[in-house]
Write a protein that binds this DNA or RNA. Structure first.
Lengths: 230, 230
DNA sequence: GACAAAATCAAACAGTTGTTTTAAACATAC
DNA sequence: GTATGTTTAAAACAACTGTTTGATTTTGTC
């Protein structure tokens, strides 16, 4: 049911005038909920634990957000915004880069986010959960979190291999590149068991990024040269 | 608590002598549990729904398997066994293949399992859930389901690029190949939204398998030739 | 047929869940 | 100060969870 929360949402007349203490507990709840949702999943995460970690009362979630699902959506939105900003930052300085530079940059930026960042694996685990059990929020995850990168890589790939944007080879090549990246982000549990010696330190990730770039560009350049004089 | 079930387990003296009706409901429960676990996840899956789909009583799970987790482990074991048999079958006929043939074969076999098979996406969704929320059963999933393929590809890759089995380039190249494959198995929700026109029909998967092979071999052969006369 | 073990069932149990309620504490404007 | 609206707190609610119980039916054996 709609209740108290709607009052707050419907009256952000002056930004940061009335906010008072609600904003505080609201932030604390989102932070705590991010942790709990990430490590337990949506269903297994309990409102009671979220509130305990946030130092708030059990009723705080329902008072502030309405219900559990709205809180989850809000956490996902927050997570997406953070990831989006990082992506936008790297996008700003690669619009002037060569296609090859774009590809190398995207791979590196994407991999590096695995070791740095404030909360290392939050966003990843949240998205992973969305993958295995999609909620209505899935659409936003893809549209805001993945499509920008996907489209940027697609343009660069098309430029290198000299084929149209929507040619099958273009699309499949992008999938191949994205797949290599996602392997290191999503398959860490497997990786840890298959290659225990592979630590995802910054300089190791650096070498991995280089490898993925070399691996991919070998094909792209080969096809590109074939097109240019074939 | 251990109870009735242990009686059955501890007395398989004559195989298929006493089994009677228990085996039947046991199979029905595993089948139903596979569906429910796959689509809802371990936590959200309820014993009541599993039993309803299996046409059994609520107490059937606890009577037959002891508790919910034991049922889950059994389902995972079943799923692994099925996948393992498929892998073993393809392994039998590729031991005599060239390294390149091995790689092409593994890619194709792995991708084709996406469209054929009795229950198309069971195993995948189960493993996906293990990825995002690993249980103690995770170890077996990796060891029985992934390591055999991983090792086979590694040997073939090492042969082509002419580097030792545990060279970093060898391992990273295997990761690149496996990553491309896993992308199509694990990222279907994303894929469905990013490329709605990409249907995973048998002949489409055939072209995808070819692409992954070409994409990967471009790099492997390049490195291999470099080694042979450099 | 009778008899014992195995299997099924309906009902209940104990615990946890998201959510609601009611009242108290707090802040703010007059 | 009082009055008003907002935020917290403790307790209770209703629904659902995995699990257990004890009776009842089914099954296999003599």
């Amino acid at each position: 049911m709609a209740h108290h929360a709607s009052i707050r949402i419907s009256t952000p007349v002056r930004p940061s005038a009335k906010p008072k203490a609600l904003e505080l507990t609201r932030d604390k709840l989102i932070e705590a909920a991010g942790q709990v949702f990430a490590e337990r999943g949506y269903r297994a995460a309990t409102i009671r634990e979220i509130c305990r970690r946030a130092g708030a009362n059990v009723a705080a979630v329902n008072y502030t957000f309405g219900d559990k699902m709205s809180l989850y959506t809000e956490v996902l939105r927050h997570s997406m915004r953070a990831a989006g900003q990082a992506a936008a930052m790297s996008a700003a300085l690669d619009s002037s880069l060569s296609p090859e530079g774009t590809i190398r940059g995207v791979i590196r930026a994407r991999l590096m986010s695995l070791c740095q960042g404030p909360r290392p694996d939050w966003h990843i685990r949240l998205v992973m959960h969305e993958f295995s059990h999609p909620t209505p929020a899935m659409g936003r995850v893809v549209d805001e979190g993945m499509r920008p990168i996907y489209d940027r890589v697609r343009k660069a790939v098309a430029a290198i291999i000299g084929l149209p944007l929507d040619h099958e080879t273009t699309r499949l090549s992008v999938n191949s590149i994205v797949g290599q990246i996602l392997f290191y982000t999503f398959s860490q549990p497997v990786l840890a068991r298959l290659q225990p010696e592979l630590k995802l330190t910054p300089d190791q990730l650096d070498r991995i990024a280089d490898h993925i770039a070399e691996f991919s560009l070998a094909y792209l350049k080969k096809v590109g040269h074939g097109k240019s004089h074939g």
